[in-house]
Nucleic acid binder design. Structure first.
Lengths: 206, 206
DNA sequence: CCGCGGGTCCACCGAACGGTGGAGGCGCGC
DNA sequence: GCGCGCCTCCACCGTTCGGTGGACCCGCGG
């Protein structure tokens, strides 16, 4: 029997999750919490096996709570369940010790399977998260942009369209597009805006 | 008679500028330099009235050279002449003490007029630069994004399309577009990528 | 010598974005 | 009560972007 604690600031969401596990024989929801700090308390006092953790919450957020849990309740597995695959949340959450990362658009069955997997110490990631994570891990050789790619990204950050960047570097627009595609692949993003964001996060841009 | 010094790392560009001023009666090009440090020396030893300064150069760049000039040769006016309106260069250059900021696509006549204006201590800015600068100065009330606008920008930085951001905030796609338009206006940019860049530069994003 | 990575370029397509000019609702302060 | 800022939403349009699957050239090193 897996003892599950739900941490989410929305009562509606908590209700939905409780329902999801209501008639699952091997899982019992032993507690709930509306913010991170409360979640850590509940998980400890109720000896949770698995904690379903939302990330964006008022007060102590999910990442901080996850880190605290790993320290204070090492036996509890944290399964992140968040609304959007804000790529920026994935790494912090996993670094903080989350064992899995699902999106709230997951099917109930998937969620149940993921909780069981978490209970066994296995990792379950949403597909899009997996992809993003691979982009990160693929670092050796892939996390590093070539000089040209950095140049192009910098120009894009400075407001250049592809055409303008092409003029700036005295090359064709097609080459800019190719470079940007490579940048997207290496940074694990799908558009120029988030590529710029990643560029700043990784201190590639000024 | 205005004594002009040209600082640019490209000999071709220097040649073109020399030609531009060749038959201007009230301006004489008294010296050239290929990098910032050299430019400061020349401007001092040749008693320059105006220094045409490129920004991107190997070694001492234009911003550093401008700052050095303001200190060592306070009588010399620095007129920045750079290739692209990389918005990121405008503020540093002006903070460093440049009196004007032109783009290299300026017409020769505009350039000549700008040098004369610089000699008189007047400021000349390229139109797009002016706009960007106003976006900066318009800070009281305009440099500050509303909470909603910051939320939208953060989502965009995290890789959301307009549609995804709309779903995330439980509002319509049209509202996202409106918010983004306001963000563009306030930050003085024209697309989401450079909005994200500005967001990081102004420490609005994480 | 040949592979490989980096840089350059091509064509095509659907989708997304940016620009414009509106509109209404809400809360706040004067 | 009225104005104003903020948030929400609409339609239309041209442009740009992203995705795909190639292609060639060059320099370096095995």
């Amino acid at each position: 029997m897996l003892r599950l604690v739900i941490v989410d600031d929305h009562p509606i969401v908590r209700g939905g999750l409780r329902d999801t596990f209501a008639d699952v024989e091997d899982i019992v929801v032993v507690g709930e919490a509306g913010d991170g700090a409360e979640g850590v308390d509940r998980a400890r006092s109720l000896a949770a096996d698995v904690v379903l953790m939302d990330l964006r919450m008022p007060g102590t957020d999910g990442v901080a709570a996850t880190a605290a849990l790993r320290e204070q309740v090492p036996d509890a597995r944290v399964l992140v369940l968040t609304t959007f695959d804000g790529e920026s949340d994935v790494l912090p959450a996993i670094e903080a010790g989350a064992i899995g990362y699902l999106l709230k658009d997951a099917l109930p069955d998937d969620l149940i399977r993921a909780v069981r997997a978490a209970g066994r110490g296995e990792s379950v990631l949403a597909p899009s998260v997996t992809q993003h994570l691979m982009g990160q891990v693929r670092r050796p050789g892939a996390g590093t942009l070539t000089d040209r790619e950095k140049q192009v990204l910098q120009l894009v950050a400075n407001g250049c369209s592809n055409r303008e960047a092409a003029t700036a570097l005295f090359i064709g627009e097609a080459s800019i597009k190719t470079h940007l595609q490579h940048v997207y692949d290496k940074l694990g993003v799908r558009d120029r805006a988030s590529a710029v964001a990643e560029g700043y996060r990784r201190r590639l841009l000024t």
